[in-house]
Simulated scan of single mutants.
Amino acid sequence: MAVLSPEPHGGRAGALPPRRVLLVSRDAELDSLLARHRIAAHLGELTTVRVVSGGALPDAALVCDDEAATERLLELGVPVVHLTSGHSGAVPSPAPDGRALHRLHRPGWLPGPWPGSGGRPTGILAPARLTGNRTRAGTLLLLSSWGVPGDEFEGFTAGPLRALVRAAVRRTGRCEVVCDTRLAPVRTAVEGLAGPEGVRLSRAADVDVDALHATAAVFLASPTLGALALAQARRAPVVFLPPLGPVQRDLAERVARAVPVPVTTDGEDASSWGSRGEGPWAALDPDLDDLRGAQRVARSLRQLSLAPM
């Protein structure tokens, strides 16, 4: 097997050949991408690869959301942990059959009811490093367009997004805009709002979102599980962007039943920019989620690579 693209969190060298785990995600979906990164951070003793070729097969695979990839790997005889990384709302998530271990990224505190999908909830998939920089500055605006109707997304980028980025630069000095896909309308929206040091636009697959969050003073995010995990794990404030599409709206409504996460539309609300300590997380019972979801999935992968089903 020729490794064409190693995952940055690769395994340690050892006397015996390490077990190899293939990591697959939908990199155009923010939750899928973040889930892969966070689980990979706990696979230090394994060799993790993104792309393989040749006759040798990996010892196991983590597939985040890509049902077709799970099916192909199972047909080849590769043991698979299939993770549904994003919020599925009231609609059951597509899931592999019983040949794969199915896991669901689902916070223990998030209100149901849940559709029957057969997967085992993981709890929060938290970043491996939970500390933030002592000195934080600027705004991280984390935007997901996955599953959002095109006209709805373009309406947001042409209107509220410009106002939010402009307010972020004015209030915090700079704004780091990170989105999973559809960069063209986002780039058009932020052009000319500030100089090159004021606004930077990146694709989520090209940057370390968790590291950017550790340096930001203000966090504005689409309602996604990956963004919630960032804020809850670091017990940091988060402000939701206007929910786009039915999945984001469903998640935002469920979150509102448990914790008071504010929503901003134009950046003029001063409460969106002030320091609020732990944000909404002090209201949660810590026993409802221990933040170890990524470790649990990594443990399943480790066991599967050593003793396939």
Rank of each mutant, 00 (worst) to 15 (best):
W109S: 00
W114P: 00
P79I: 08
D66R: 14
L33F: 12
P79T: 09
R106Q: 13
D65G: 08
P92G: 01
L43N: 00
P94E: 08
D65Y: 08
L62N: 01
D65K: 04
W114T: 00
L62P: 05
L57W: 12
R26C: 10
W109D: 00
A28K: 01
L101R: 11
L23N: 01
R50D: 15
D31M: 07
A56V: 11
P94I: 05
S32M: 05
D31V: 04
R20I: 08
L34R: 06
G77L: 12
R20M: 11
A90P: 03
S117Q: 09
V52W: 05
R38F: 14
L30I: 12
E45K: 08
A95N: 05
L43S: 02
P107G: 03
L16G: 03
L73S: 01
L22M: 10
S85K: 07
T48A: 14
A100S: 14
S93N: 04
P18S: 07
C64D: 06
T47A: 13
H105A: 13
V63Y: 03
H105M: 10
L76I: 02
D97W: 07
L104W: 03
S117I: 01
E71N: 06
A40K: 02
L83N: 03
L30D: 04
V52L: 15
H102R: 15
G118L: 01
T47N: 13
L83S: 02
V51D: 12
E75F: 00
S25V: 05
G118H: 08
R19M: 08
V21H: 00
A60F: 10
G118P: 09
L33R: 08
G44E: 13
L33M: 09
P107S: 07
G44T: 13
P115D: 03
V81M: 03
G44S: 14
T70C: 15
R106I: 05
G89Q: 03
L16E: 14
G98S: 14
E71K: 07
P111G: 10
V49T: 13
G108H: 12
S53L: 11
P115Y: 04
L74A: 02
P115R: 04
A100N: 05
G108Q: 11
A41C: 10
L73K: 00
E29L: 13
V81K: 01
H42A: 04
A40V: 08
G108S: 11
L83T: 01
P17Y: 04
P92I: 03
G86S: 14
L83W: 11
P79W: 05
I39L: 07
V52K: 00
T70A: 15
G54Q: 02
I39T: 02
L22G: 00
I39A: 04
E67L: 14
L16Q: 12
A61S: 07
V91G: 05
R38H: 11
L57S: 11
S117F: 02
